[in-house]
Design a protein around this nucleic acid. Sequence first.
DNA 1: AGGGCCATGTAATAGGTTACATGATTGC
DNA 2: GCAATCATGTAACCTATTACATGGCCCT
Lengths: 213, 213
Amino acid sequence: MALEHAILVSLLEKPGSGYELARRFERSIGYFWTATHQQIYRVLKRMENDGWVDVRDVPQHGRPDKREYSVADLGRAALSSWLRDPIEPESVRHDLAVKIRGAAFDDPAGLIREVERHRQVHQDRLAHYRAGEVRDFTGPEADPDGPEGPEGPADPADPHRPEAPLDAERELQHVVLRGGIAYERMMIAWLDDVLATLARFGPADPRTSPSHP
Amino acid sequence: MALEHAILVSLLEKPGSGYELARRFERSIGYFWTATHQQIYRVLKRMENDGWVDVRDVPQHGRPDKREYSVADLGRAALSSWLRDPIEPESVRHDLAVKIRGAAFDDPAGLIREVERHRQVHQDRLAHYRAGEVRDFTGPEADPDGPEGPEGPADPADPHRPEAPLDAERELQHVVLRGGIAYERMMIAWLDDVLATLARFGPADPRTSPSHP
DNA sequence: AGGGCCATGTAATAGGTTACATGATTGC
DNA sequence: GCAATCATGTAACCTATTACATGGCCCT
């Protein structure tokens, strides 16, 4: 439903090819919206047919040509209209929670390894987010209109941009990133709670040491 | 992917009809896994064909008969096997985050209402979870907003009871519920952050004129 | 008389995943 | 020579959503 809108936002932040979009969906955007390259190419084609995006062939040396997409007026209008549409707060789908409740009927302690693995993934994501925050937003709390470093993530492609006292694009990217950080921290704390709970059942698994950084 | 497993867990917790399952997916299970009745009936039929569940016709007076499902041995084995399969920690799909980043190119302040609406939904869910916790899990866990640290809840059972029942089903339901509570608290705090950030931008973005088809 | 709940489904469509396919360049 | 990265796609399949459909009971 919203993949096309996620693509519009990404292309507004910076135009790019389907391949590049696919990469971004493994990085920044991908942390709150996933998509494979197959899906992206399919949707991009539809968006092109609908006049939401413009295409430009970019020849490259040593590499295949790429088709660089940018947002057209119709796409901007579509995004604008979607932003005005209220959406339902979605309930998350949480396989792991199903597993945890299911473990009551099988082997609770057998799930410890899996939960630890998940914990590690969230720990890694948190570290990655934090690194990105320090890199792009100069520390945990961004200081308003601080003189920026070499080059921020500001887009070079938006010609009609006034000198803004407050950079909305940057600030809003930051608040979304802070959401990711809060989410990962919550998950790590909760998974610790889960591990403590699981440890109270079944024959103790001698494999693991419960120490975590 | 895991709907059938969610159904198995729910049926193990208590046998029931497709309709009843659909209700549960609006309540307890539904908080971490959603499904409509259409989907449930379709999957139940497949599970019946595969011998994962047994069916029993239950005549009722004043109401239509219902087909009550319960988990068969094959279903139990399937669940057991799924529990042993590692799953990838899933990235959440977060429409609202897309909207927030998209708002930079339209009208940041125009999103405030929507974010407030979402905040209210999460507030309501939190209240609902907390009520359920107090009702079903004894312990009024005194500190609201307290850090949900690795030490977990004060064990309501006991320090000195040798034959403590340690009801896995109950404890694991509780830890999942605590996850829901932690999630909602995090969301509320983050949405406050989002609102504070959005409020720093004017009533309209000078780049776009929100006159619109 | 009408709305809401119980109870079960079918059909069409949209959205997403997996597997398959191609072909050039760079680096080991 | 082989693998990885860049770059774009097709086809088959599975999952999920939306709309449509039925019918009786209970309450106001």
